[in-house]
Nucleic acid binder design. Structure first.
Lengths: 335, 335
DNA sequence: TTGTACGCGTTATCAC
DNA sequence: GTGATAACGCGTACAA
């Protein structure tokens, strides 16, 4: 049986209140007694029971994190940040994996609430009305990662997708490309597909380049769909000189599609991605892409949660972190 | 303020014990009252406070999972299994990320204990004396993943590395390869490097093939080291016809090394891996490798933990799961 | 079948 | 500066 505060009190010949005071140094205790208690704690190896503490403090020191997949590099890296910084603030992470299924998400959200978590960091592929309903109903601190929450009152953290897409498109244009395909994820449900398209379109228009709608493909972030999308371009004989995929996975789908059809990257077609997953620097050719500060996204998220828990006002509701264009070998100049 | 069991009792005109009985159906309750209580619970949206429950039951319904990295496909996939099956048994996962640092690992192990977790699933790159000490001292259920625990009394789950290595080597030999390099991870600290070597050696010897020690490299599972190891082979002019890396990441290091030096895979050199990470089927050429049932490893681990928690005897202490040789495009026959 | 009362390990509010 | 004691929300002997 674990040693409790009572045991310590008895052994040190003091009251439990005194023991409580020295472990929390909530109130002054005479040096002599303090040392005596400390010694007993040392001897017995006593550690306060966090469950009992939670009960009276009404605090669990738990933060719920719900993600659509754990075995995903993007999410894993974000989790690293959440976990590490969370521990710094003495918070533990309760992990929930939803596979992106709405039912699971809703179930976990409610589960976490009943587990008395003090805050929730939420990631999903699709933000829906049902989510918003939950967030509005509960007054528990929430932070969303990489979702567009500008239309409603939820804190979010992400990069500036429009700017990033603009920069990447501009980069391709500067390399002499005029026919540039855009392979993107979903555009509905508050994802950043629209922003990315805007950035792409802005760069194209600024340079008087025509946007060929046949080269704009929605592939739901799936490698296979990107593969097929490029196959279609090949069949339709409208293969561009450059392909901009808004996720590295889709970029690899595109590259594989090209390779499998006998094309060379970047000699025949340039391909660039978005995310800079690990694979991006392992694959040959190494992928030119946009790097997001994944670890920092996690870190900023949990910091925002902690601030909210403490009741501190946070300066901004939408955190925008810096990105970076990583130039590697999958894009060539055709000027 | 959240609604408590007391509120429900009052509103339903019964005692709290009765309410407790209906939510746990621990003892018979008359149908009429049961329905009345259920209705009140429904109306008020009452959910039992798990913290209070934990306190009295001395159970947290929490399982600690400590891993050396989250942003790792292997681990992520195992976590999926742990998480999903855990939830099935009504257990939550407390996630700890150690970066493989001993201090962090020990700290988290103790932290988890004080958090009253009911069991711990432990993954580490290196199993050390300090770990074993902890495990021996505490009587909390422990399961280790992919570590060789045959020498001491800790439950573990993994595949049969020796057999898998044997099969893969045999596969290469059957393809006509005679000079086969082995790029492996660490061999000390109860990792499976030794078993893999044994499997490799057995296959070589059975076929009267000489083992060239210059072709056995320890690369600590690191892509970069494997890259260099192959560079060395090239410089020393001892390039074999096949390379067996005991981790896909190292296989990719080897392949990149080859490609960057002008060799073709598998035309000039065949390369096979171990793990079947996602990348293995994305990379070109697609990698021939050994697939481990990652999800199942997680699932079996947590099932073992749950059994231990319940005090049920588990049949075996070392769980060995089946593996599979996945034949793809990175190996060619040279017969 | 139902209700009363106690205890789980802590913190916080009082007195002293 | 220190010590009783009442909460916190729940499960469960025990009594009725």
């Amino acid at each position: 049986m674990a040693v409790t505060i009572k045991d310590v009190a008895k052994k040190a010949n003091v009251s439990i209140s005194t023991v409580s005071r020295v472990i929390n140094d909530s109130k002054p205790v005479s040096d002599e007694i303090k040392h005596r208690v400390l010694k007993v704690i040392e001897e017995t190896g006593y550690t306060p029971n966090p469950v009992a503490r939670s009960l009276v403090m009404k605090k669990s020191q738990l933060i719920g994190v719900v993600v659509p997949s754990i075995s995903n590099f993007f999410i894993g890296e974000v989790l690293n940040g959440i976990e590490e910084i969370g521990k710094m603030y003495n918070y533990d992470i309760l992990l929930c994996n939803t596979y992106g299924e709405l039912n699971q998400e809703l179930r976990y959200l409610n589960l976490l609430k009943s587990k008395q978590v003090e805050g929730i960091i939420f990631m999903t592929w699709e933000l829906k009305e049902e989510h918003k309903e939950f967030f509005n109903k509960e007054d528990i601190p929430i932070v969303m990662i990489n979702r567009d929450t500008s239309e409603f009152n939820i804190t979010s953290v992400s990069i500036d997708h429009q700017k990033a897409a603009y920069e990447m498109t501009k980069y391709l244009i500067d390399k002499g490309h005029k026919k540039i395909a855009l392979i993107r994820g979903r555009i509905e449900n508050y994802v950043f597909g629209i922003d990315q398209y805007k950035g792409y379109a802005k760069a194209m228009e600024e340079n008087n380049l025509e946007i060929d709608q046949r080269l704009i493909k929605n592939c739901e972030f799936k490698l296979e769909l990107a593969y097929e999308a490029v196959q279609e371009m090949i069949e339709d004989d409208i293969l561009p000189t450059a392909i901009f995929a808004t996720a590295d996975s889709m970029a690899f789908g595109a590259i594989n599609s090209l390779i499998d059809s006998g094309y060379k990257v970047p000699e025949d077609v340039s391909v660039v991605g978005f995310h800079d997953i690990k694979l991006a620097s392992i694959y040959r050719p190494k992928l030119t892409t946009i790097r997001q500060p994944l670890y920092d996204i996690g870190a900023v998220s949990i910091r925002a949660i902690v601030k909210k828990i403490k009741g501190e006002e946070i300066e901004e509701n939408i955190f925008v972190l810096p990105h970076e264009l990583i130039e590697r070998d999958s894009c060539k100049s055709i000027k």
